Amino acid sequence: MKSIIQITILILFIYPSTISAQEKLNISLDNSCSYYGEKIVDDVYSFNSTDEAEEIVGRIVKIVGLEQNFDIKSANVPNALATIKNGSRLILYSQNFILNIKNATGTDWSGISILAHEIGHHLNGHTIISGGSRPNLELQADKFSGFVAAKLGASLSDAQAAISKFSSKSGSSTHPPKSARLEAIAIGWNQGNSGSKPPSEPEPVRESSNEKENVISNTTTTARIIYTGDNYGCGLPIQITIGNKTFTPNNNSFEVSGIPLGTQKYSIQGQINCPAIGGCSASGQGTLNISENATFYISWQNVSFGQCNIWLQPG
């Protein structure tokens, strides 16, 4: 009976419950994050995912208390990747790769951790940031996969199995070395066992101990606040306070008078609304050196599901 059950699970993973026609995808690596970093050289075709993969994804999003905001498809990709197509979030994985790595590592947890890693890319907003895979983003997704693996009951060695077996020892321009990835998984796994919230990697708050930051100057100037936009038509209904001046920009190039000169603290609160891919609550704070007719640019980064950091940087 045990052998029959094992064979049934294998068949479910190889053959989707519903057979559908292939769909050719135009994948942009600029908004894609892959597991090991191999280049895509062939045309990519997607197929229905398996019931087993859908169930694994359902368990992962449930255990972190989030809604599934992406689709999962089988495809002829080198391993697995998170990407965006026509404004919709996708996770693509190779069934052949998942089966091979399962056989090589001797555990189902390797495939689960890979899917968790790619889910981490979407939930941390990495695919809405131009540039594709980067070492810091890959480490965030590795931490998330370790966290999820712990919550699902995996041992640390199980959570690290896929990276231990095949990850590059030296790393690359897009992916960190094996030692860093194993450490990131261990950090996430320990957080999962301690009852912490899912890990993220927020931008550090740029603070200074200089007491002059608290001084509000009596001399003011007009400053320009610019948001250069993004690939997804996001709107930024935010409120900014610089020194003792609070204002709400109503366009992407906004002039505001009455900004105090000198070193001033600032804070930002509000939302980032992207019609195609969702939104997040945005907040940030820091310090600016205000000069005559200064220009500052708004930047933001998604750091966890529904949460973004936002800041000003001099022009």
Rank of each mutant, 00 (worst) to 15 (best):
I225D: 00
Q285G: 04
N252C: 01
L261T: 08
N218V: 07
I225R: 01
S217A: 10
P249I: 05
T248H: 09
Q285E: 14
P237T: 06
T222Y: 05
Y227K: 04
S257I: 10
N273M: 11
S291Q: 14
R224T: 15
C234M: 04
Q264I: 08
N218L: 11
I225G: 00
G235E: 14
I225M: 01
S283E: 11
G229N: 03
T263L: 15
S281G: 09
I225L: 02
G243C: 03
I225E: 00
Q269Y: 09
Y227R: 09
A282T: 05
A282E: 02
E255F: 07
N251P: 01
V256E: 15
L261F: 02
T287W: 00
N273P: 01
G243H: 05
S257R: 12
N293F: 13
I259E: 04
P275Y: 09
G258N: 04
R224I: 12
F247E: 06
Y266V: 08
A282D: 03
T220F: 08
G278E: 03
L261Q: 10
I272M: 06
G284Q: 03
S281H: 10
T246L: 01
G233V: 07
E255R: 11
S291P: 01
A282R: 02
T221D: 07
K245C: 00
T241R: 11
G262F: 11
G229W: 02
Y227F: 15
S283W: 02
A282I: 07
N293T: 10
T221F: 09
I259A: 03
I259Y: 05
N273R: 14
Q264P: 07
C280I: 07
L288C: 06
S281C: 00
I268K: 09
P260W: 09
G235F: 08
I242D: 04
G286A: 01
G229T: 06
Q271G: 00
P260S: 06
T287K: 11
G233M: 11
T287Y: 02
N218R: 13
G258D: 06
I272E: 01
T248K: 14
G279D: 03
T241F: 02
S257T: 15
I226S: 10
T221P: 06
P237E: 07
G235I: 07
N273L: 14
P237D: 06
V256K: 13
K245T: 14
T287L: 13
S257L: 09
S281A: 11
T220W: 06
E213D: 10
T219V: 14
N214K: 15
G278I: 03
Y227E: 00
S217K: 10
A276T: 15
L236E: 05
N214R: 13
I238Q: 03
A276E: 14
T222P: 01
N252T: 13
G235W: 01
V215D: 08
Q269G: 00
P249T: 08
G262I: 10
T263W: 08
